[in-house]
Amino acid sequence: MIEAKNVTKRYGQTVVVDDVTLQLPVGGITSIIGPNGAGKSTLLSMMSRVLPMSSGTVRVDGLDVTTTPGDVLARRLAILRQDNPLTARLTVRELVTFGRYPHSKGRPTVKDREHVEQAIRHMGLDALAERFLDELSGGQRQRAFVAMVLCQDTDYVLLDEPLNGLDLKHAVSMMKHLRHAADALQKSVVVVLHDINFASCYSNHLIAMRDGKVAFQGRPADIMRPEVLRAVYELDISIQRIDGDFIATHYR
């Protein structure tokens, strides 16, 4: 279980994550939603120890992320950040292989290679495996980074806007794959999503953030309500029930 206790992030005088205390459920998909600048990425980065906190503690399975050795955590928790580095020219396969680094320490075994090929296949990258990252489209590159994170094969998978730049087909297939990871492989998946309908249809638990705080949380049925979404997004959103799912319409 990931537990955040009184987590705060300040930049100078501005507080961007404000005293958040949160327990993320084990197993299933948890989606974090909220407007731009709500602090979603900041919170996710602090929970995955890639960004230092101003105050507070985060524990993953009881391990304090600031004091636990990095390689121990890297085998339990993996994070995809919102903006991915494009400084090194690696091929897709090389990048995905680095996802195995916490397990293989740079000497991939046969099993590691299987993980790599599987992740490449699941993200539909077979034909692109030998391409350099800077020779891919934005969505293809995004899938390559997600493949790397999945390849890390951790119990906790944190993804900041994994659907960023993906076309409809790949977005659906990515969400289905995350669902599969949660159901069949017992992973705990935490995603930041802007498409609340994907969040509604695929998540077990929703967390709505606003102004650095957790404004609401609960099952999709609790959050996918006009008055809740209005408070989060300052937008009139009507909710339809279609085939048992709560679908928001907000285009007009």
């Binding site: 990095g70 994070i79 580095p85 090194a88 680095f98 680094y101 890390q152």
Partner: peptide, 20 residues
């Protein structure tokens, strides 16, 4: 070599893979 490649991808990338 692998460490340098990872570091070339940035600090948080490196941290995520459990390296300092």
């Amino acid at each position: 070599a692998d460490r340098f490649t990872v570091a070339g991808m940035g600090e948080s990338f490196t941290t995520n893979l459990g390296l300092r």
